[in-house]
């Protein structure tokens, strides 16, 4: 594992910790998209089915379990916690799942490296991850007073994706047979989706202003 990959994973982990901390400490999930969290849960479930079939490393197994458990914890809080669920912006979080899930499913059925259930679901999770942040970005755009921690959460998630691109470049240069076109293209699309957010995040940080995204 190279330094970019490790930094990417740690940033991903940190993003989730920031979100857990924010919701738990403030007892509020204001500005957090339940749709994005549920899409991530679907991504992790489909991708990590290999927990049962394919042991890669202890590191890999533990990280997968952490990602699954933390995402399901957030969903549980947002849906069922008696204090937190009241703070969920239900009316603003209106992105439709089917607009993301169906195209990704069709694409995964058409474009995959092997037509088996496991492989199609794995590929589906790659495509879906690329766009799963969209409901969150739309919600942020509609939120007037974006919580610092919510902004940091999205910034860390975007940074994790950018670090993964550096990881692929490193692997491409150092591992002779390392090629993953579907993963690379999805990952680049995913990172591009964050560019606009990054621009406003860095601008607000430089000017010492509160983050707000123009509608």
């Amino acid at each position: 594992m190279n330094i970019f990959r490790l930094a990417g994973d740690m940033t991903h982990l940190l993003s989730i910790l920031v979100l857990l901390l924010k919701i738990n400490a403030t007892r509020s999930c204001r500005g957090v998209s339940l749709k994005t969290q549920e899409l991530y849960a679907l991504v992790f479930v489909c991708r990590y089915l290999d927990l049962f079939t394919n042991f890669i490393s202890m590191y890999n197994t533990i990280m997968k379990i952490i990602f699954l458990a933390s995402t399901f914890t957030i969903i549980y809080w947002m849906r069922f916690h008696k204090v937190i669920r009241v703070t969920y912006d239900r009316e603003q979080d209106t992105f439709r799942y089917q607009f993301l899930v169906l195209p990704c499913l069709v694409l995964a059925l058409l474009l995959n490296s092997e037509f088996t259930v496991m492989e199609v679901l794995w590929t589906f999770s790659i495509y879906l991850e690329a766009v799963a942040i969209l409901p969150q970005l739309v919600l942020l755009q509609r939120t007037n007073n974006i919580d610092n921690l919510t902004g940091n959460y999205v910034f860390l998630l975007g940074s994790y994706r950018a670090l993964y691109i550096l990881n692929w470049i490193y692997r491409f240069l150092t591992e002779p047979n390392y090629r993953q076109y579907l993963v690379w293209i999805s990952g680049i699309v995913q990172t591009i989706i964050y560019i606009d957010f990054f621009y406003y995040y860095i601008k607000s940080w430089k000017n010492n202003e509160k983050l707000s995204l123009p509608a």
Binding site: D9, N60, F67, V183
Partner: peptide, 10 residues
Amino acid sequence: EAEAERKDEL
């Protein structure tokens, strides 16, 4: 072997 290597990323 190749399969594990291909899917070692999270």
